[in-house]
Amino acid sequence: MSIIIQNISKSYNKIKAVEGISFEVKEGELFGLIGPDGAGKTTIFRILTTLLLANEGSATVAGFDVVKEYKAIRNSVGYMPGKFSLYQDLSVEENLTFFATIFGTTISANYDLIKDIYVQIEPFKTRRAGALSGGMKQKLALCCALIHKPKVLFLDEPTTGVDPVSRKEFWEMLKRLQQTGITILVSTPYMDEAALCDRIALIQKGKILKIDSPENIIKKYDKTIYDIRTENMHQLILDLKDYPSQYSVYAFGEFIHYIDKNTDFNSKDLAEYLIDKKHQEITIQPATTTIEDVFMDL
């Protein structure tokens, strides 16, 4: 295993950031830590990258203990924190040279690993990092995290605040990097990105809810979800929550996702109920289950 976490807990004063977290990441795997802000993702990343000590539990990264062998870990991993943390007054090229020098290497020595990413920012190599767009900053940060050929790559919410096109490009880059044998642990609050990982851990309020491949998590979900839409969507939510057999109601894109408690649910009964509530242009149809639906239920 490339990463092993056993019963890790961390508290800030009386607030428990993570509690009894355990999971493993295989070598060469693209593993996603999926959850909203405040779920404990960044705390786990800081513990694994030796920036923070856990109150309880143990962890190893690339075979090294995070407490006893922290120096070896720092030489073996690449870390891209959630906040852009490169030197904003240095140029693209100067930042990359600086990080290569720290790790006792050069840009040319490991250029094959970053080439596909660096060619996209090379036209701006003399521009100061602080003047780059969000997507370009992201690519530069990834290059700096890879310049020493790490065994494990940690990416903490790398696509937050980045436009959809750059997000798509970034995940394509991760897939190509994975093919070189690098183990990648990535965190994200975006549920649609979960489907791009080999396996995921769903996390909320410092606790792991479920660990499996995205496909298995969806396949094992045993409830039927319905897309519902009417002219008055705000009132629809309120009325669905008052329906006697409702199990779950929440907004999902242009629809309301509805789950009924009864396995013999009849959509005609619900339609009649909505008509009585003065709704018009009613649509009720089975929905495709997503990771977000499972997370909301959990």
Rank of each mutant, 00 (worst) to 15 (best):
V25G: 05
V25D: 10
V25S: 08
K26E: 14
K26A: 11
G28D: 04
G28N: 02
G28V: 07
G28W: 00
E29I: 12
E29H: 10
E29M: 01
L30G: 00
L30A: 07
G32C: 02
G32V: 13
L33Y: 11
L33E: 09
L33T: 13
I34C: 07
I34M: 07
I34W: 09
G35L: 08
G35M: 14
G35Y: 04
G35N: 10
P36K: 09
P36M: 04
D37H: 08
D37Q: 11
D37G: 07
G38T: 15
G38K: 11
A39L: 15
A39C: 11
A39M: 13
G40W: 09
K41G: 01
K41N: 15
K41Q: 14
K41H: 09
K41D: 05
K41Y: 05
T42H: 10
T42P: 12
T43V: 03
T43D: 01
T43S: 05
T43M: 01
I44V: 14
I44T: 11
I44L: 11
F45T: 04
F45P: 14
F45Y: 01
R46C: 10
I47T: 05
I47W: 00
I47H: 09
I47R: 08
L48D: 07
L48M: 13
L48N: 12
L48P: 07
T49V: 13
T50M: 06
T50A: 04
L51V: 01
L52T: 05
L52Q: 11
L52H: 00
L52S: 12
L53Q: 12
A54M: 15
A54N: 14
A54T: 12
E56H: 03
G57E: 06
G57N: 07
G57D: 02
G57L: 06
G57S: 00
G57Y: 00
S58H: 04
S58M: 02
A59I: 02
A59V: 09
T60K: 10
T60Q: 14
V61W: 04
A62N: 06
A62P: 00
A62Q: 01
G63F: 02
G63W: 06
F64V: 08
F64K: 09
D65G: 02
V66L: 12
V66Q: 00
Y70S: 15
K71G: 04
K71I: 15
A72Q: 14
A72P: 01
